[in-house]
Design a binder for these strands. Sequence first.
DNA 1: AGAGTGATCATG
DNA 2: ATGATCACTCTC
Length: 210
Amino acid sequence: MPDPHPRKSIIHPSRLNRDFYHQDVVKLAKAILGKVFVRMDGNKRLSGMIVETEAYLGIPDKAAHTVGGRRTPRNESMWQDGGTLYVYFTYGMHHCMNIVAQQADEPVAVLIRALEPMEGKDEMYTRRKVAKKDRDLCSGPAKLCQAFNISREQDGVDLVTDSKLWIEDHNIKIPNKDIASGSRIGIQYAEEWADKPYRFWIKDHPCVSK
DNA sequence: AGAGTGATCATG
DNA sequence: ATGATCACTCTC
């Protein structure tokens, strides 16, 4: 006999914990696809599902900001514990955000390249004047920072404990067959590291950056 | 395909 | 102090 009062299954979003971020950076870059990035903007929730990422492998990686063990005021967050947010400013106008992986003093991180906007789209359209469709809001690493109002102020925030920024698991499983990979964008200078397949995205998803 | 834009860092 | 660079985006 069918339930006379069927309900949608209730999603209980759970915040990702420290163990999740302590994964190998390439594994994290894939595992974080389908997870939901959340920012409290005053009392408004802004959120979006992660649909495209890139892994940066740290000291040996000629495309990484920490190549050769570089440690400067700008990239200090990359040296912190897994779960730290690393936000950098570039080209005189853009911010991009990364999720630090693995352990402290292993300066590796996952660049968040695109989100599927979920909550707070009105605020995102206000900040992103050129956007015409939802897919224009967060389909690039600097676009999503503009939509979510992320800047250097958020650099170094701990996503495991912060009261305004975190990542949630909505129990959405992206099967391996739905994950595509390819070379990373904008790092042609990185010689033999330029072609490594460390960019990951959800196949055919309309909100990816290209 | 080119412009825009200024923080950042290695050099000296 | 100076200059080259830049994990990008928009418009043409």
